[in-house]
Amino acid sequence: YIGSKISLISKAEIRYEGILYTIDTENSTVALAKVRSFGTEDRPTDRPIPPRDEVFEYIIFRGSDIKDLTVCE
């Protein structure tokens, strides 16, 4: 799965898409590269977040912050 395009939804209901870079089982983290944030879209939340235009080089997510993770390709 390393190198695959991943769609990830955080506990804050924010969806991110990026390339799976590393999975650290010891620290329970997932790192994505070339990440875009799509905001909360239409998911119900107390704090709606708009999508962002910039592409983040890397984002490291803690396993406890991840609600859903899907391989896109």
Rank of each mutant, 00 (worst) to 15 (best):
13 E>R: 06
43 R>M: 00
60 I>M: 15
25 T>S: 14
26 E>L: 11
66 I>H: 03
35 V>R: 03
49 I>S: 13
27 N>E: 13
42 D>Q: 12
16 Y>F: 12
42 D>R: 08
49 I>F: 07
21 Y>R: 14
28 S>W: 11
39 G>C: 01
54 E>M: 05
3 G>C: 04
48 P>R: 11
31 A>H: 15
57 E>N: 05
11 K>S: 10
54 E>F: 06
72 C>Q: 10
23 I>L: 11
8 L>T: 01
25 T>K: 13
51 P>W: 04
51 P>H: 04
58 Y>D: 10
17 E>S: 03
5 K>V: 05
28 S>K: 02
8 L>F: 00
52 R>H: 08
38 F>G: 03
50 P>V: 02
4 S>F: 07
16 Y>D: 01
33 A>C: 10
16 Y>S: 00
3 G>T: 00
43 R>E: 02
38 F>R: 03
63 G>T: 14
45 T>N: 13
50 P>A: 10
36 R>P: 08
13 E>N: 10
12 A>C: 13
45 T>A: 13
66 I>S: 00
55 V>T: 11
48 P>L: 11
63 G>N: 15
4 S>K: 12
27 N>I: 00
68 D>W: 02
61 F>H: 01
44 P>F: 11
59 I>Y: 05
1 Y>F: 06
24 D>I: 01
22 T>N: 15
72 C>Y: 06
52 R>M: 12
48 P>G: 06
27 N>H: 06
10 S>P: 07
8 L>K: 03
20 L>C: 15
24 D>F: 01
18 G>C: 04
17 E>L: 03
54 E>C: 05
63 G>K: 15
27 N>F: 08
37 S>R: 07
38 F>Y: 15
47 R>M: 15
30 V>W: 15
35 V>A: 10
60 I>F: 15
22 T>H: 06
59 I>Q: 09
71 V>Y: 09
41 E>L: 02
22 T>M: 06
60 I>S: 14
32 L>I: 13
73 E>S: 10
22 T>Q: 13
17 E>G: 01
58 Y>S: 15
53 D>Q: 08
69 L>A: 07
36 R>T: 08
13 E>C: 07
47 R>H: 14
52 R>Y: 12
34 K>D: 15
32 L>C: 04
12 A>D: 15
71 V>E: 10
67 K>S: 05
64 S>D: 14
72 C>V: 12
19 I>W: 11
34 K>L: 05
4 S>C: 11
45 T>H: 10
73 E>C: 10
53 D>E: 14
54 E>H: 08
34 K>Q: 15
14 I>A: 08
8 L>W: 04
55 V>Y: 06
9 I>P: 00
53 D>C: 08
30 V>E: 01
30 V>C: 04
65 D>H: 05
8 L>I: 04
70 T>E: 09
19 I>P: 00
72 C>D: 07
37 S>V: 10
65 D>G: 03
64 S>R: 12
54 E>T: 11
57 E>D: 12
42 D>F: 13
47 R>Y: 15
8 L>V: 12
57 E>C: 04
27 N>W: 13
31 A>R: 15
17 E>Y: 02
16 Y>H: 03
57 E>T: 06
71 V>T: 14
52 R>A: 09
10 S>K: 01
59 I>T: 14
42 D>G: 08
47 R>I: 09
37 S>G: 03
33 A>H: 13
47 R>K: 11
20 L>H: 00
44 P>H: 02
41 E>R: 01
16 Y>L: 02
25 T>I: 05
11 K>H: 06
36 R>N: 06
5 K>A: 14
8 L>A: 00
61 F>M: 08
61 F>L: 08
60 I>H: 13
